[in-house]
Amino acid sequence: MTVKLLYFAWVREKVGKAEEILDLPVDLTTVADLLAWLKGRGPEYAEAFGRPGVVRAAIDKRHVQPAASIAGAREIALFPPVTGG
């Protein structure tokens, strides 16, 4: 599955890019699977996704939980907890 990944705030800084299009392995089914897979893609990814339970996700511009399915996602954003307001 080809999906566009977006990174924000310190996730973007650690990964070193704001977005990328990746072909995901077929055995990834949830957001948690995706985060675990990304962590293994290199030291910069390990730095961004190494701490469990910190990075949040949105699929097609809606917040989702780690157990959410990524099937059919066009755009997955990964970011730290929000700090607006």
Binding site: A9, A58, H63, F79, P80, V82, T83, G84, G85
Partner: peptide
């Protein structure tokens, strides 16, 4: 609205201090 906005709207603050250090604001 303020309580929900603060925990749901995707904004991130980065602070620059007078001594030149930068830091992301923690929730």
């Amino acid at each position: 609205l303020m309580d929900y906005l603060k925990t749901r709207a995707p904004f991130w603050k980065r602070e620059l201090t007078t001594d030149g250090t930068e830091r992301w604001v923690e929730p």
